[in-house]
Amino acid sequence: MNLVIMAMILALLIPIYEAWKNDEVWQRMLAFASIATKTAIMALVISVLRDDWMIGIVAVIILSVGNAALMLLAHVIKRINDVSN
């Protein structure tokens, strides 16, 4: 079970590296979306492994709220590009 978590951490490092290297803001937003979903899924897996439903509920809420935050931020950044052109 430790191996599953370690594999997920390795998969999480890929978008982190991408967010660090890429200079375009939309590429970073993509990496952010990837990381937000991956961390929530990792918390879900850990909650199942530990049989801890409190962490599981929080992970589900983070999974849904993370998408909402991403949409809000993407909308504001899109408006910035619209106004400046």
């Binding site: 982190i16 967010a19 803001v25 970073r28 937003m29 990496a31 952010f32 990381i35 937000a36 961390t39 929530a40 990792m42 918390a43 850990i46 909650s47 962490i55 929080v58 992970a59 983070i62 993370g66 935050a69 991403l70 931020l73």
Partner: peptide, 15 residues
């Protein structure tokens, strides 16, 4: 955007 990434990681660590 990086602050969003930091927030996601921090939430995972706390959980």
């Amino acid at each position: 955007v990086m602050r969003g990434i930091l927030g996601a990681i921090a939430a995972l660590v706390y959980a």
